[in-house]
Design a protein around this nucleic acid. Structure first.
Lengths: 169, 169
DNA sequence: GAGAGATACTTTAGGTTTAAAGTAATCCAA
DNA sequence: TTGGATTACTTTAAACCTAAAGTATCTCTC
């Protein structure tokens, strides 16, 4: 469809990256919008913060527990952040934490019975909220978005890897 | 393409919202990934935080300045947050702040000459980073994503409006 | 089995963020 | 024109978050 790629004659002129920037801003807006709404509903409805909910969501998918490092990687947050979150959730009785037998550096955390029950209750409503937010999208829209975002994720991850260290070009 | 819509016989059974939930998680992952990368590059390359950069980006688009409320709405963050950010950016000489003549409650902020120059320098690189992150997407992918995210934004905003107050159903 | 390096986690300092309460200025209706 | 409501911003307390430095433990090589 494109008549002529505007960048065919090498990188002389400063290339136009406006489209990608606008796309990024739109992506960010969508996420911020939804995240903010979820955050405020979690607080109003269950008096829980989003990070706590997210952490519990990770643990709910791991009946045998996770190490703090696992959580940190999955949630894409720093180690120190997880330490604090876990501490508070243990104190409130949602989480159980114990040192691994095999490796005394490792802390294994898991949801307590009560923590799991509370999470399940929240998750059920949460899922409806999310469905509501996306309700104007058709089935094909959802499929397309899934595909395009998967592609985006791969693209971004590649750029992140090559950009932060090796620095090609 | 769908043989039979699984939800044709009314809302008896708990409907399946798994697709939307997965879509939301993927959207969140993409944003977190890119945001984290941008954050770390801004720090390494320019020793500036992402919120500061975002605020300056808003001001760069408003040569006549903005009120704190404007900024707060645009950035979708709380008022108190903006107060602190602005304070630090004024102190470092990037921003200029003065009380409106018409309305003494209002603070108008704008980039200083130095602040604008520094922002432009950062923005130029930032734009390349973003383009890089999306570089595996074709032109059509970008167009499609723009369209679908616009639709998502409208859908989410509608749900947010009806959900937080009116509470239909 | 001793030491170098890696790994898992914690601590620290500083910045960001929110919700909620507080202050000051403006608006508006009786 | 006066008093109540609204608006713009600030302050406060608590949580979140990161990067960087620190501690404890493990692994691996010789």
């Amino acid at each position: 469809m494109t008549i002529l790629d505007s960048e065919t004659k090498a990188g002389e002129t400063p290339e136009d990256h406006g489209d990608e920037l606008r796309l990024w801003l739109r992506l960010l807006t969508c996420t911020t919008l939804i995240e903010g709404e979820v955050r405020s509903r979690l607080r109003e409805r269950f008096d829980v913060t989003l990070p706590r909910f997210d952490l519990m969501a990770q643990l709910d998918k791991a009946p045998d527990g996770m190490t703090l490092s696992d959580v940190s990687k999955r949630m894409m947050v720093s180690n120190g952040n997880v330490t604090g979150l876990v501490e508070r959730l243990c104190e409130s009785g949602h989480l159980d934490r114990r040192t691994s037998d095999q490796d005394r550096r490792v802390q294994v955390i898991r949801l307590t019975r009560a923590g799991r029950a509370e999470f399940r209750k929240m998750a059920a409503e949460h899922e409806i909220w999310i469905a509501d937010m996306f309700s104007d999208l058709g089935e094909k829209d959802v499929r397309d978005l899934m595909r395009l975002l998967a592609k985006t994720k791969l693209s971004a991850r590649k750029a992140a890897r090559s950009g932060s260290n090796g620095n090609v070009r």
